[in-house]
Design a protein around this nucleic acid. Structure first.
Lengths: 244, 244
DNA sequence: CAAGTTAAGTTGTAGGATGATATGTATCAC
DNA sequence: GTGATACATATCATCCTACAACTTAACTTG
């Protein structure tokens, strides 16, 4: 559990740096859609690295659907719509404003998913959700274990929708927020003692047990807005005061 | 030595295949979190490929935050929470059931985002949305240009929320659906003539102009459900009949 | 026994060689 | 001159070997 931090402080390898450079060039529009990249040889000379390194960098971009390499011709920049992956820049997570955007996206995803889960959850779903709830029950402060339990709680609800894509997306967004908060706490120790509001979680769980989609959605929305507030993010959602 | 793959006109490269294999092993749990991967040499022998190919495959998985490689030690499987990217398997898009799931996710994302856009859109947003609307206006059938205009319409609305993450996610999901439909049309020519319902788009646009979030959300929800139906997908959403 | 040294194993990088594929060019028959 | 075929070139795909950097464990030595 504790080697999580080791992973965050990733060592920059040469392929990663080359990929980041090319990626920025594409994002910034210096390499437009359809443009042909320099040959591997040219790139290896330009960066002063071996062709192997360039190939590993290109392999990354290719996996993301950013470029397409054709044997005998070259590598070309693909249209932004053809990306096969969503990738969120770690650096961007350190910006509080981005945290606000992430919370907003999370709220949209989770509120309605909670409503879906309320109508589709089976008994085993309720059991695993309850188990996660119990794990964070006793805690009043945000410690590692409680955060894990909190995220597990949300993931299990997402899983109860029966839609694997919803589960994937919610898990992803939640983890980005977790890391964003982690960065925020490093620079601002004030956030060090942020409580988890167990009551909000219980209300969500109760609505799921009752099979009441509207109550589940309202409870989830209130919870996420509350959670955002507790880390210093005000959510300017249109539905904040909606009577549900 | 083993050029069995080379003969086929493969779009699939060897690194991609190795990455897919390892990725499946990790997803299926055969390689648990924290487990160490075989050495590059062992993998290259196992798959009958060069170490270079293995390295390119590992570079992919590493970029996704799936594994972490440490010099002198080995490569280790990271926790699912540490994934830095969402990637949707192209093969999965060919399954109609997955298309249903994607539409469901899209509905969740776009409905509420439309409400947000209604309260935040500026004049320039409305202009670009209108431009996209005009581009598909004359067409009654789904042709490539109209599909592009349709997707642009939705992307511009997402952009009007002012939340770049929402824009990214919606663009991504829409593109996955486009490709999923593309596959479906290849195998089932019945879907060849599916009309775009311009009226539904106009209603969304009008609600955005009026700045009415609830009307925008309802119109968007109705549109996506309609669009799903027109390609043969029934959306079992909880709010389908909601009185708005 | 403790501390430093060495050796082996693994990933990171370099560089060259060969096969596969697309494109342009030159040659040759007519 | 025109068209088709063969050749040459450029580029990516893959393979191979070698060495550097790093980690671990065994070994040596005082």
């Amino acid at each position: 559990m504790k080697q999580r931090l080791a992973a965050i402080g990733t060592v920059e390898t040469l392929p990663h740096r080359v990929a980041a450079f090319l990626s920025r060039e594409i994002e910034s529009g210096e390499l437009n859609t359809g443009a042909r990249l320099p040959t591997e040889q040219e790139l290896s000379e330009k960066f002063g690295v071996s062709r192997n390194v360039v190939r590993e960098a290109i392999a990354q971009l290719r996996a993301d659907g950013m470029i397409e390499a054709r044997q005998g011709i070259g590598a070309f920049v693909l249209a932004p719509e053809q990306r096969a992956a969503i990738r969120i820049d770690r650096e961007a997570l350190k910006d509080t404003h981005n945290m606000e955007r992430l919370f907003e996206l999370r709220c949209i995803l989770e509120a309605e998913s909670a409503a879906l889960a309320a109508t589709r959850r089976g008994k085993e779903h309720l059991d695993s959700i309850k188990a996660a709830l119990d794990r964070m029950g006793g805690e009043e402060r945000w410690e590692e274990g409680s955060i894990d339990a909190d995220l597990l709680f949300h993931r299990e609800i997402a899983r109860a929708t029966g839609n694997s894509y919803i589960h994937t997306f919610i898990s992803f967004v939640c983890e980005q927020i977790r890391q964003s908060i982690h960065y925020a706490r490093l620079t601002n120790p004030l956030h060090d003692l942020v409580e988890i509001n167990v009551g909000e979680h219980v209300r969500i769980y109760d609505a799921l047990v009752a099979g009441d989609p509207e109550a589940a959605e309202a409870a989830m929305r209130a919870h996420i807005i509350g959670a955002a507030n507790r880390v210093g993010v005000k959510l300017p959602l249109s539905k904040t005061g909606g009577a549900k």
